[in-house]
Design a protein around this nucleic acid. Structure first.
Lengths: 216, 216
DNA sequence: CTCGATTTTTAGTCGAGTCTAAAACCGAGT
DNA sequence: ACTCGGTTTTAGACTCGACTAAAAATCGAG
């Protein structure tokens, strides 16, 4: 039905919509590392297929069908990640990229077997919620790690998943979803922090802290 | 490196070479359900990449690299099938088609995890040998089920894997690799047979018998 | 050894998806 | 209200992989 390229665009649009804005040509182009001209062309194809509504010079927004398709892809992607880490024991910093290819190739029956085998997990290994079979995305209330006050304790909810080097670092630090952290010290200037996590003290820069969210 | 389309051609060429001949344009075209003109064009691309040697009007043969690539794909395909049946419990008549898509998307690390998890299986669920990591294809000596004499006992080695309806039927009959069968009666005219298999008597047509091979 | 049938290749087109360069448009500031 | 800068769209081209129709080459039968 929808080609792999179309699916990639739908996902990019979904991600950008999720940040609140109505994504324009340039944003989507940048998100996918593709020229603006290509993006305009694809917007037309997607509109043709009824997957987005598109106004010239006015950006796109996903239609009901487009959103459903995107959520299905995200379900596939995150269940595949879960499978790769939990059952295949692959490192969590590598599975995102693999799942990016698998999400286009795995048929629903395989995905649902994954879900069953893994005990219907609610989140991917990086803590992001997995859309349900019927296309709803469970809401998880989070706040930035940087907003946790000194002395407070919080539980890691999710981490930014697109940067493998960062993920490896977070893994070494023990900053994975479910980890309980206590803020020992916080530097307001650049947002870097000292945390206690897993019984040891770790140092995180503002940039690293920005990639981590805790349960609200 | 090689596109999905190229990989499909390499596999088709491999299969045809395996039957003894040096495949020509027409054969490959038919194998893939594609026009002869497209096949000529692809032969040139493959030759360009050094994956086949191609003579005009003279067919193709896989180069060393081409053969290695094809064997790698077959390894991926068959391990994926094993995974789908053994770990995901999907029906054996459906996994071939799924594996046809997965073989292009599964990276080596995933494949090798499959192999480990499954105990380095030697064959796919339909009995076909799995190429080794270093690119050798274990040889299994077989002969047609139709050649087994009345009264003789044999063990099913492998079955034709490309026809889902046939596979479902074979599954219901219990004619899976490893099954021990005894020939009760054989009709020389059309090759149909009565077999004892799993303690019950089954009837197989010549066509069905032709899809089954037993250990020599 | 030639003629006709078959197979293969060429020629020309098409669609998807990409690009760059140029034109068109929008919106902010004067 | 106009102009300037940035964004978006158009125009034109390219690659890959497919197609059909026509030309060319090969093969087989007489």
């Amino acid at each position: 039905m929808a080609s792999q390229a179309m699916e990639d665009y739908l996902l990019a649009i979904y991600r950008l919509e999720d940040l609140g804005r109505r994504p324009g040509t340039g944003e989507v182009a940048q998100e996918l590392g593709v020229s603006a001209a290509s993006t305009t062309a694809m917007f037309k194809r997607l509109a043709q297929e009824g997957l987005v509504s598109y106004r010239e010079y006015g950006g796109v927004s996903l239609s009901e069908r487009g959103r459903a398709l995107a959520l299905g892809l995200i379900r596939r992607h995150r269940l595949a990640e879960r499978f790769l880490t939990d059952l295949l024991d692959l490192p969590w910093e590598g599975v995102h990229e693999i799942a990016d290819r698998l999400e286009h190739a795995l048929p629903p029956e395989v995905i649902e077997r994954f879900a069953g085998l893994l005990g219907e997990p609610r989140t991917c290994p990086h803590g992001h919620p997995i859309p349900t079979r019927d296309g709803r995305l469970p809401y998880i209330e989070v706040r930035p790690l940087g907003s946790v006050e000194v002395g407070e304790t919080a539980v890691v909810a999710l981490v930014e998943e697109r940067d493998a080097a960062l993920l490896r670092h977070l893994g070494e630090l023990g900053l994975k979803p479910g980890a309980r952290v206590r803020v020992v010290e916080r530097e307001p200037f650049d947002g870097s922090m000292r945390l206690e996590c897993d019984g040891r003290e770790i140092l995180v820069s503002g940039r690293v802290a920005g990639a981590v969210a805790v349960h609200a």
